[in-house]
Design a binder for these strands. Structure first.
Length: 218
DNA sequence: ACCCAGGTGGCCC
DNA sequence: GGGCCACATGGG
């Protein structure tokens, strides 16, 4: 069928684009901000940091996120347990540089509560299947699809492809699709690449790196 | 002085 | 289903 043929072409294109990006930039683990998110293996502590950063990075400049992270670290608040225990105002002041700091404090608290009290930490997620875990994350106020998938992929190492603004621009640039809804794009990528969280981690990072590079030039 | 950055939820039509 | 708005800060 015509559609199958088209699908196959798109699949091949998505696969070859990954190879191209990889040879152009190398593994993203080597480059700045992806050192932690694409690190393998990750410690429990590092996974918790990624959960925290997934909230802080919402609509924020990465440098500002890192300042906020440093502030939390200095006060020994860079863990889910300590965020559960800390006062709102303390966290608000520390994460101020990442913007939307009142909302984000609430979101961090809700998320940390979920992990610590509802499922017994990062380790407690192991027995929960990905679709159910995603549902649970999405039900938390302030956790939308991208944040949920950031957590699932980079912190919990589930093969879920993350879609963001850069991915949408990337898809447009390469004419991979004429539809740009989150679910549709996620399906395109997940159906094209081997279901391996390591590849998903690197591919998404490489897309961001590539699109930032393009932006710089224009 | 403007515009933007790895979003989300609420409200409106 | 889409369009617009608030949320807040620091960097270019």
């Amino acid at each position: 069928m015509a559609e199958d043929f088209l699908d196959k072409k798109i699949k091949n294109k998505i696969t070859s684009l990954y190879q191209q990006l990889l040879s152009k930039y190398g593994v993203p683990y080597a480059s700045g901000q992806w050192q932690l998110w694409c690190k393998r293996p990750k410690s429990e502590k590092e996974k918790e940091i990624i959960v925290i950063e997934s909230i802080l990075t919402q609509r924020a400049n990465w440098k500002n996120v890192q300042i906020a992270v440093k502030h939390l670290e200095e006060k020994n608040l860079l863990s889910l347990q300590s965020i559960v225990e800390a006062e709102y105002q303390i966290i608000e002041n520390l994460i101020r540089p990442s913007g939307f700091y009142r909302q984000k404090t609430k979101r961090l608290k809700d998320l940390a509560n979920f992990f610590v009290y509802e499922i017994g930490g990062i380790k407690g997620t192991k027995q929960i299947k990905t679709p159910l875990l995603r549902e649970k994350l999405l039900s938390i106020d302030g956790v939308g699809k991208e944040t949920a998938d950031d957590i699932l992929l980079y912190a919990l190492e589930r093969p879920v492809f993350v879609i963001d603004e850069y991915t949408k621009r990337f898809v447009k640039m390469h004419n991979l699709s004429s539809k740009f809804s989150y679910d549709f794009l996620q399906r395109i990528f997940e159906n094209s690449i081997k279901k391996d969280y390591k590849i998903y981690e690197d591919y998404h990072a490489l897309i961001v790196i590539e699109m930032k590079e393009k932006q710089k030039k224009s």
